[in-house]
Simulated scan of single mutants.
Amino acid sequence: MSPTPNPLQLFDITPGQIDTVLARFYARIRIHPQLGPIFNGHVGTTDAEWDVHVATIARFWRGAILREPGYDGNPMRAHMQAGNVRPEHFDPWIALFEEVATDALPPDTSKAWIALVHRIGRGLRMGVEDMTRPASAVPSLG
């Protein structure tokens, strides 16, 4: 018998499914030719360092989707302060996530999470784009 989902959660997914997707996704990120060097430079290169990162990101997604407490970071600030995250990095990040989620989850679940990833990715990309604009420039609104 599966547990009753939290009525506030965004869509039907279990914590275990979140963990599975993130483990597979970040295993692929680590070796991605464009994204791997960026992530490895910020996260580290050891399994222990990556375990900490993936656990942090799992808390983020559990909060965003399942409405669980436990994540207290600021993804926008982290991406903006990284210094080497560029707007063009979001498309391959999203494409890789789509591949992993589609392979690992039931279709309705993967579609719902992918839609959320696109929405969050758009916001993060806009924040990163705005960091590189001169103060006098008009901000991008989408």
Rank of each mutant, 00 (worst) to 15 (best):
G63P: 00
Q17D: 06
A48G: 02
L124M: 15
W50Y: 02
I94R: 15
I114C: 15
D130H: 12
Y71R: 07
V128F: 15
N74G: 08
A48L: 05
E49V: 01
G63K: 06
I120K: 12
L116F: 09
Q34F: 01
V21F: 10
M1G: 13
F60I: 00
H42W: 04
G41W: 09
F11S: 01
F39H: 05
A101C: 03
T132D: 13
M76C: 10
S110F: 08
L124R: 13
Y71P: 04
H79V: 01
P75M: 13
R62H: 05
R86V: 06
A104H: 04
P5K: 04
P75L: 14
Y71E: 01
D91M: 12
R122I: 02
T45R: 14
A95N: 12
A55K: 12
G73Q: 06
F39R: 02
Q9C: 01
D91Y: 10
H32R: 01
L10Q: 10
L105Q: 11
P15E: 12
G142E: 14
S140A: 15
P3A: 11
E49K: 08
V117Q: 13
A137N: 12
T46K: 03
V43N: 08
R24A: 10
N6W: 06
F60Q: 02
F11Q: 03
W61P: 00
A112L: 01
D130S: 14
T46S: 15
T14Y: 14
M80T: 11
G16M: 05
A135Q: 11
L35D: 03
A101E: 06
G70N: 06
I31C: 07
V21A: 08
W113P: 02
H42Q: 11
V85Y: 13
P69C: 06
H118E: 12
A112C: 03
G127M: 12
V138H: 14
A137L: 08
R59C: 00
A95P: 01
G63Q: 09
M126N: 14
M126K: 12
M126S: 14
I38A: 13
I31P: 00
R125S: 11
A48S: 08
I94S: 11
F25G: 02
H53N: 03
S110V: 01
I18A: 04
E88L: 15
D103W: 13
A64G: 00
W61Q: 03
A23K: 14
H118C: 08
A135V: 09
N74F: 10
Q34P: 00
A55P: 04
G36Q: 06
Q34S: 08
G83Y: 08
G36Y: 06
H89G: 10
D108I: 02
N40Q: 11
K111T: 06
